[in-house]
Amino acid sequence: MATTTPSKPSKAADTARDNRAKLLERAMSRHSYSGDALIEVLHTAQELYGFLTPDLLKSIARKLRLPPSRVLGVATFYHFFSLEPKGEHSYIVCLGTACYVKGALGLLETLERRCAKAGRTSPDGKVSVNSARCIGACGLAPAVIRDGEIVGRLTPRQVTEDLDRIGVK
């Protein structure tokens, strides 16, 4: 279980936080607080908060009138949901067959060696490493989504240089 809580909020962040709670509430009310909408609500919660904390899950469970264990069960079944804070930078390595055939594993290995196992964030919070089944950029294989942007035809060496550049030890 992730026990990490978001870092201490500033005043400005406080108001943003209120807004987030309001927006989440609105998403739940749009679905009439129906338990069937759990996945949609978790999507919204993750969009707003970045990741799902136990408190967040508990409050969603209460609002949707669901048993907490079911909420955690759903949140951990789907790989899209994260129970840990994301790193400063994110690398999603496409492991679709086209990328695989063109050497995506080498990229992932480099990232895992330097940062963290796929699905995790490096201990210093710098980089989150993930893999995806297919990001649909098969023409650019092997492809990586780096901080939200697709980068194609990468080599392990380029990844290494990239990591050096952002100061990963």
Partner: peptide, 19 residues
């Protein structure tokens, strides 16, 4: 409904409440 499953595949685990 205290119990449920978390995770999936071979990594599934029985959990109570929020784990």
């Amino acid at each position: 409904h205290t119990w449920d499953l978390k995770g999936r595949g071979v990594n599934s685990l029985i959990i109570a409440d929020l784990g």
